[in-house]
């Protein structure tokens, strides 16, 4: 039996889909069999982030409604032998699927795959409930902003009330220089407020934009900071103990000068 992990956040735009794509690809690169499930029905995006948008024939709703067999809807990623995608339906809405159906789907997928990674839609309504229904564990993505942290807190509460305990946290889009200046909440600040365990941090990185433009997950082939950060998270998800990455902030000459002067 494989493991079902849901990637969620509450707030939109914090990097759920990017995280799903990169974790999934990263785990597949470790030789595990992985399926990515886009649970954002009506607003599918994992397909374009993965660069697989041209290969969709059937989708998740086709599977739950019995229009096709599960295997027919799975898209195999030709670049990574063990990676598959189950795309969301684009022309339906979130009520086309029920939590029970999602639970069954996750169960079926977990029999075939080592990891089932679900990209949860933003919000806390039906789509969220569907996405978490079949999950064994949850990873919450947030950014160092008041709104994203607040929503993460709400999600933690909702997961708890659904019996999904001990979610793990990813803090995305950290800007080390701003943190250093005291103008951005630090990892410790956020952990203290949310009181959950951290599974990784990702620095703000232009390479994410570039790799998304190309439809190639950053984790696969780059020395960019974000790629390394994702690779670290992949190893932690798989049970390894990896120390948090540290950011070197290139201090300005003026900054050093100030230090020398004792300010």
């Amino acid at each position: 039996m494989g493991e079902v992990i849901v990637i969620t956040s509450g707030k939109g735009g914090v990097g759920k889909t990017t995280t799903t794509a990169n974790l999934g690809t990263g785990i597949a690169l470790q030789g595990k069999k992985v399926v990515l499930v886009d649970a954002d029905i009506g607003l599918r995006n994992l397909d374009v982030v993965m660069g697989l948008e041209n290969r969709i024939v059937y989708d998740l709703v086709d599977v739950t409604e019995g229009n096709c067999r599960l295997k027919q809807a799975l898209i195999r990623d030709k670049r990574y032998e063990t990676l598959y995608l189950l795309p969301a339906a684009q022309t339906r809405d979130k009520n086309a699927v029920s939590p029970d159906q999602m639970q069954q789907l996750c169960k079926d997928l977990a029999e075939e795959f080592d990891y089932v990674i679900i990209d949860c839609p933003a919000g806390i309504e039906q789509g969220f409930k569907n996405a978490i229904a079949g999950a064994d564990r949850a990873i919450i993505v947030t950014t160092p902003e008041v709104s994203a942290v607040r929503d993460a807190d709400r999600i933690i509460g909702l997961l708890e009330s659904e019996g999904k305990h001990n979610p793990r946290l990813i803090i995305n889009r950290i800007r080390p220089l701003m943190v250093k200046k005291g103008d951005m909440m630090d990892i410790d600040d956020i952990i203290e407020i949310l009181a959950v365990d951290l599974i990784g941090i990702i620095p703000e990185d232009e390479y994410i934009v570039i790799s998304t433009n190309r439809g190639e997950p950053a984790v696969a082939n780059n020395s960019a900071m974000a790629s390394t950060a994702y690779r670290n998270i992949v190893r932690r998800v798989m049970g390894e103990n990896v120390p948090l990455m540290t950011f070197e902030t290139n201090e300005s000459l003026w900054g050093k000068f100030k230090k020398v002067l004792g300010f």
């Binding site: 942290v149 200046k181 005291g182």
Partner: peptide
């Protein structure tokens, strides 16, 4: 740069 206690403390407090 001495004034800069940083806006993060405001963020934390509000949160």
């Amino acid at each position: 740069g001495k004034e800069a206690q940083g806006s993060k403390n405001i963020a934390k407090e509000r949160l």
